[in-house]
């Protein structure tokens, strides 16, 4: 990267953080403030005692999950993509695979300016598509409901995530079988012998990803030594 490009990207990155922080702060205020504004419309305010009990019961699990997601996904998404993804949600079932797919299609390398741009474009586009699809869906809810909820189509919509991960698995296992074999085998054995873990799949991404990275590192170093 030439010095001019470096300086331009530095400036872009700096402004991304300012914009990202500002918009995230506004979103926090909007999301937390919304129930109180709704309360004015509905004529009732949140029961803070029930809220505190509920938070103590389920909050810590999601707090840990959010911290883990944050640490894992920021390196994948870059700065702009991260700010957008944590506001727009649906990370595992859409944003992460979408950004990774886009990155691979154009061959962007992590930590580069190109990766930052591609990731932001990908997350912004997918978020806008979700917003538009849901807005159209809500607008057409009455005519669409019988189609979307028809018992015939139910298995299709119940299996969006397996369809996505099946396709992604082939794409990423192909050419990386040495890295994939042990994590997929270990996860299969774990879920077969400890079925209670089926409720914690999103948490098991951490050890599974850790094992995959360790194996990848081994082969990476081995290739470098040759």
């Amino acid at each position: 990267m030439t010095e001019d490009r470096n300086a331009f990207f530095e400036q872009y990155d700096k402004k991304t953080h300012v914009l990202g922080r500002m918009t995230c702060l506004i979103c926090i205020v909007l999301f937390v403030g919304a129930p109180f504004v709704m309360g004015i419309v509905l004529g009732a305010m949140p029961d803070l005692g029930a809220f505190a009990r509920g938070f103590l019961a389920i909050g810590p699990v999601w707090l840990v999950s959010c911290v883990a997601e944050y640490l894992i996904y920021v390196p994948m998404l870059g700065s702009g993509g991260s700010y957008l993804a944590f506001v727009t949600g649906n990370l595992i079932n859409m944003k992460i695979p979408c950004a990774i797919n886009a990155r691979d299609i154009v061959g962007a390398k992590s930590g580069t300016a190109e990766n930052e741009i591609i990731s932001t474009l990908s997350i912004a586009t997918s978020s806008l598509v979700t917003i538009v699809v849901l807005a159209l869906g809500v607008l057409l809810l009455i005519p669409l409901q019988p189609i979307l909820q028809s018992p015939t189509l139910q298995p299709a919509f119940d299996n969006v995530v397996p369809a996505l991960f099946g396709a992604m698995a082939f794409k990423y296992y192909k050419g990386n079988l040495k890295v994939a074999a042990i994590p997929v085998l270990m996860m299969t054995l774990l879920f077969l012998f400890v079925p209670s873990m089926l409720g914690s799949v999103s948490f098991m991404i951490i050890p599974s990803g850790g094992i995959a990275i360790a194996i990848a590192y081994y082969f990476y170093k081995k290739a470098g030594a040759r």
Partner: peptide, 30 residues
């Protein structure tokens, strides 16, 4: 040679997908 950052990102994603594929096997038994 591709930097380890990219190798690690791909590996992390393989780990993510593997957790879900493994869970589909678990669902059959459970």
């Amino acid at each position: 040679i591709v930097g380890f950052g990219d190798v690690a990102m791909t590996a992390m994603f393989i780990g993510l997908v593997s957790a879900y594929i493994g869970s589909y096997f678990g669902q059959i038994k459970a």
